[in-house]
Design a protein around this nucleic acid. Structure first.
Lengths: 119, 119
DNA sequence: GGCCCTTAGTATCTTTTGGATACTATAGAG
DNA sequence: CTCTATAGTATCCAAAAGATACTAAGGGCC
């Protein structure tokens, strides 16, 4: 039996959300936000146009929705597809990563719906 | 067979996170935030003092931690216990509701750690 | 007595984000 | 030439986050 200096499987997840300088803090900040959690949920059943997302996420302003979707796109959660027609047609959809992220977010949304106002 | 005018089980969860005027929006806003998700996670293994939580949540300022814990307390997620000693000793712990909320938040924290920087 | 130590915050100021609302580009229909 | 629709942007104000300094309370030390 030979002992290796380095572990064979060094560390499954080197990321630690509690560490200040961890890259994953940015990811947590992205997903742990009201509008991101709702926007990803809105797209869970397929592509949706900007205006339809806006109506589903009652109360969101166009500026904030635009910023939210762009940040999600920048982090690879959402795809943006432009159909050059008039009036302009733009569809947003979840990437595989976004669909994966939707799982824990769906749990959170469900928990909130199930546990609000049950005094 | 008699048809009832009202359904026997009207609606398991009348809450809808997408609705602007739903009470649960406030709950979502509370939990879907970086510091709340981390603060609840910090307490998942038992009571912890202010200073210890502050060290665990690397980079949080005392003002923001204080605000975060107070909001969680106001919403019944966290209990605050003062031990009148010198120097002052204050312990924070999860309520049963807070422990319940920790489940979906733990999924989210785990997802973030597992899916950041895996390119 | 005067000074330092610790804990758990608060006070203050600056920067960033969120939110409300008005406005723009595009082109086809009437 | 105006009206409509879509997908945003521009602008301005309010709210929240963040950095840092400061405070209260009492016991130990010299």
């Amino acid at each position: 039996m030979i002992a290796s200096a380095e572990p064979v499987v060094p560390n499954a997840y080197p990321n630690n959300v509690y560490a200040a300088n961890c890259q994953c803090r940015e990811m947590l900040d992205l997903l742990a936000s009201k509008w991101a959690a709702l926007a990803i949920g809105a797209l869970e059943n397929g592509p949706m146009r900007f205006g339809v997302v806006r109506k589903k996420l009652e109360g969101i302003s166009p500026k904030v929705l635009s910023q939210t979707l762009r940040k999600l796109e920048d982090h690879g959660m959402v795809d943006r597809t432009v159909f050059p027609a008039v009036p302009l047609h733009v569809e947003y959809s979840l990437t595989p990563l976004g669909q994966s992220a939707n799982a824990p977010l769906a749990h959170l949304r469900d928990w909130v719906e199930a546990n609000t106002g049950i005094t």
